[in-house]
Each structure stands twice: as C-alpha cells, then as structure tokens.
Amino acid sequence: MRRGWFLPLAAALGFVFLYAPIVSLVVFSFNENRLVTVWSGFSLRWYGELFRDPQILGAAWLSLQIAAISATIALVLGTLCAVALVRFKRFRGRTALAGMVSAPLVMPDVITGLSLLLLFVAMEGLFGWPSGRGMLTVTIAHSTFCMAYVCVVVQSRLSDLDLSLEEAAMDLGATPARVFFDITLPIIAPALVSGWLLAFTLSLDDLVIASFVSGPGSSTLPMVIFSKVRLGVSPDVNALATIIIGIVALGVVAATIFQLRARPKRARA
C-alpha cells in the first residue's frame, strides 16, 4: 500500500499528546523543588516523604484490600451471570438480568454512588445493617459495578467457545458442574484473569462512588489524592503517580511479551 505522510504524522502527534503529560509528571516527581514545575535538581525527596505519610499509606492499603476483595466477588458473580446469559438460552427474567448487569456500564458514577448511599442509609434505618459506612459499603458498591465489566469480558469469551468440547464431555457422562469445572473453566481462564484485573483496576481507580459510600476514617487512595490535588500542587502525588504508572507499565509490558510468546505456540498447534 502506498503510504502518505499524513497518517504517520497524525499518529505521532497523537502519541505525543497521550504521553507528554505523563512523561512530564514522571520527570518532575524527581524534582527537588517544592514548586512542581520549576526544575532545581534531581532528588528522591518526595518519594521519602510519600513513604512517611501515614495518611497515604493507610489509604493505599485500604484501597488495595477493597480492590482485591471486590474484584474477587465481581469475578464470581460476573462469571455466573455470563454463564447464565450465554449458556441458558431461555429462562424467565433473562432480559431483565441482561439489562441489570449491563446497566452499570452506562450508568454515570454519580448515580451509582448516590443510589447505593441512599440504600445503605435506608437499610441502616430499617435493619440496623450496615451500621455506618466504610470498607464494607465501598466493597459492596465496587463489587456491583465491577461485576458488569467481568460479565462482558467472560460473556464474549464464552460465546466464542467451541460448544462441541462441552457436548463431548456431556456425552461421556460428565455432570454439568463437572463439565464447567473441567472443560469450560480452564478454557475461559485467560478471560477470568483479565476480568479480575480489570475489576481490580477499576476499583482501585474509583473516586466518585467511593466518595459517596465511604464513611469518616475510611478514605480510599483516590479520595486522598483528590483532596490533595484540589488544595493545589503536591509533589508527593507526583511520586505516587510515578510508582503507580511504573507498576502498570511493567504489567502491560509483561502481558504483551507473554502474548507475543504464546502466539507462535498456538500457530503450531
């Protein structure tokens, strides 16, 4: 195909747009100066300050716990939902279930957060549970909206799946549960991993829903970052962002290499 200059140039500018702010943030995280944008020498000072800040460390630990638990709940419920929608063609309420599970994908965060908060307040008034708001309520909220994403990921993998494998197992006398655990689950495992990771990241990243449903003393990491950023420049947020971006970059690079390695193997089979 003939190549013009337009596409490469547009793509290059696009990538500069995507990366310039991130790169500048990473560079200035090593800046000695308190003024985030005036360079006055290399320093790891803000990293040191970050690790001495109990508020950030506590919030980070809370967020990681919430993300791990809610990603796991979302994985189980989302997978069940995907199996129900893909494998059971007809059952009463199928349309309703499909609608309910996909609705959080288009639901603005402010509505999800507000509606769950009002539910928790009403439930506390009626049954006395959950008493107060904190880690439990944030975990429930995150599980609910992450479930939708897991369901979509697993659903698309399940509907691509070759049915003859499951049918063969069934013909050989395996019970439906056995077929699911021995045949279906190993095949959809990659989708489960990416679904869990997606849910984990979404939970770790959520500011709006957590702000509504968390209580005093249980601020998640995004909530702490948001309040710091709102007050103005804070170089330790740059350091924190650099660490997070570094971890994500390592993960994405590893996943890409893993995929590239796996490809020739599949081609041979």
């Binding site: 995507l18 702010p21 991130i22 944008t37 995004p222």
Partner: peptide
C-alpha cells in the same frame, strides 16, 4: 502504548494533564 494509559489511573492522568 494505547493500552498503557487505559490501565493507568484515570484520576492521576487528569492530574498529570492539569500540571501540564
């Protein structure tokens, strides 16, 4: 390079842009 920002914290990317 497209997927990397996709997985990176949304809030931190808005913050990066603000600094920019």
């Amino acid at each position: 390079l497209v997927i990397l920002p996709f997985w990176t914290s949304f809030l931190l990317r808005v913050y990066a842009l603000a600094g920019f």
